[in-house]
């Protein structure tokens, strides 16, 4: 179902005010999360904080529209897959450092401090962590809210 139709349908999710505001704001949250991740090495923030914000944009979808909209965008399978891939990317970055002689060596040119393209592997690590944290937090929220609730309802 289209997200606009869900907004109009009073039987789904929260009130129409919440749904409209969430629909407008969710992309900005996503972009803000990306900004925090990509600028993590030169401003406050970083992979974890940015990843949490990325996950929150999906969590907002669940809260406002119910589980189905968010699950249609990213299912539990892909959430756990991205979670694993993010962790794998981080470990791989660590292993690539061995080429330069040390585990987790910052083997890329460090660049000028303060510029976006600088700090070697730190931005790459931030991106890997953000994918890992964002997907994991979203998966945890899915597991605790949607899947958890289904199984208790079946029991009762």
């Amino acid at each position: 179902m289209d997200i606009k139709e869900i907004t109009r349908d009073k039987s789904l999710g929260m009130t129409i005010i919440v749904k409209t505001i969430s629909r407008l704001i969710v992309s900005f949250i996503l972009v803000f999360g990306l900004y925090i991740v990509l600028y993590g090495h030169i401003t406050p923030g970083g992979g974890f904080a940015g990843g949490v914000i990325l996950a929150i944009s999906y969590v907002l979808l669940i809260l406002a529209f119910g589980g189905k909209v968010a699950v249609a965008k990213m299912s539990g399978f892909w959430a756990s897959m991205w979670d694993n891939l993010g962790a794998l990317a981080f470990v791989v970055i660590g292993f690539l450092g061995l080429i330069g002689g040390y585990f987790f060596l910052n083997f890329i040119n460090h660049g000028t401090p303060g510029k976006l393209i600088s700090a070697g592997i730190i931005p790459l690590c931030n991106i890997a962590i953000a994918v890992k944290v964002g997907a994991a937090l979203y998966a945890v929220f899915l597991a605790l809210s949607i899947y958890g609730r289904i199984s208790t309802e079946e029991d009762e």
């Binding site: 945890v140 605790l144 958890g148």
Partner: peptide, 17 residues
Amino acid sequence: GLGTLALMAALAIKLYE
């Protein structure tokens, strides 16, 4: 702490079940 909290919450749900 986030990791342990998530695990604790999951265990609490399962225990309640």
